[in-house]
């Protein structure tokens, strides 16, 4: 399930275990963002880490054949290029949804990643049918009252839901065990991606 780590929470013990993975992702993303091979210094500035830490992350990346070191530059391999592309697109999507700051934290949450990566394939909730599961990707709404209300009942980008019933008037959703109803008129403003696999509980 959820990866128990978030960089900004600052819990040292957890940090230790996870920092390298994050830094590795950051290096790949930076390489893509810059459009050129980043130097050690670039990474140190971007992620606020020491030279030694960058070195360790790069070593790990080399081991996975994702980058090559060329002097001070970190160059992406073909495989690395692909991975970086995914990470970069994902970062962009999350940034669009939640803003830059949250994007940094969110992108390391494994279970949401694969859905948010597919964000560009999201469809309006009007396309969902009874019993289908999915993840909410975006809310194309302006009225802050409606947004506050949707957030209040637990529907935010990233929320996993299951369609209980599509009625003529409302959509009945199951959000972590709670039933919520959302006006049918709003479904064209809400976008989600359909789940790849069914949920852990197959009894429903």
């Amino acid at each position: 399930m959820a990866v128990k780590f978030i960089s900004f929470l600052g819990i040292p013990k957890l940090m230790e275990r996870r920092w390298k993975n994050i830094l590795m992702e950051d290096i790949l993303r930076l390489a893509k963002e810059k459009g050129a091979s980043p130097t050690f210094k670039d990474v140190m500035e971007d992620s606020g880490v020491t030279r030694e830490e960058v070195g360790e992350a790069v070593k790990e990346l080399e081991r996975k054949k994702l980058v090559k070191r060329e002097g001070n530059n970190i160059v992406l391999t073909k495989e690395g290029e692909k991975t970086a592309e995914v990470i970069y697109n994902y970062h962009k999507t999350v940034e669009k949804l939640f803003g830059h700051k949250t994007a940094h934290s969110f992108e390391h949450m494994a279970d949401k990643v694969k859905y948010l990566q597919m964000a560009k394939n999201s469809v309006s909730l009007a396309n969902f049918v009874d019993g289908e599961e999915g993840v909410l990707i975006s809310m194309q709404l302006k009225n802050p009252k409606i947004i506050a209300r949707l957030i209040g009942i637990g529907l935010v980008p990233g929320t996993r839901f299951k369609i209980v019933k599509v009625r003529d008037d409302v959509l009945v959703l199951n959000i972590s065990g709670r039933l919520v109803i959302v006006d049918k008129k709003l479904t064209k403003n809400l976008f989600g991606v359909k789940s790849l696999e069914s949920s852990l509980d197959r009894s429903t």
Partner: peptide, 24 residues
Amino acid sequence: MITRAGYASLLAKNVERISRLYTK
């Protein structure tokens, strides 16, 4: 609002373990 909700969602994910997503 959405950013805050995002943080809340992160926070929740960190402190809760869900073994069943949707109840009957």
